[in-house]
Amino acid sequence: MKKDTLSLVARTDRMAPVELTKAQVKGWVRVVFWGLRVYIVVMIVLVAIGFARGQI
């Protein structure tokens, strides 16, 4: 029964996850990552100020 179930699925669709390799970060993607780092740092600083002043 288990074998039948598996073979029914196997006839139509592949279930295996895609292979994952680390992406080459270059070009506009590199710019996006730097923008993200700057955004995170700025937001953390702003929130830290908010905490320190008791605004949060």
Partner: peptide, 27 residues
């Protein structure tokens, strides 16, 4: 069109375990 049963044996356990739900959809 026919993938060997043993192909699934080599897959991760949590992939194989979903076969029943997928079979319901395929049927």
């Amino acid at each position: 069109k026919h993938v060997a049963y043993t192909d699934f044996i080599d897959c991760e356990e949590d992939v194989r375990i979903r076969a029943k739900d997928q079979a319901r959809v395929v049927a």
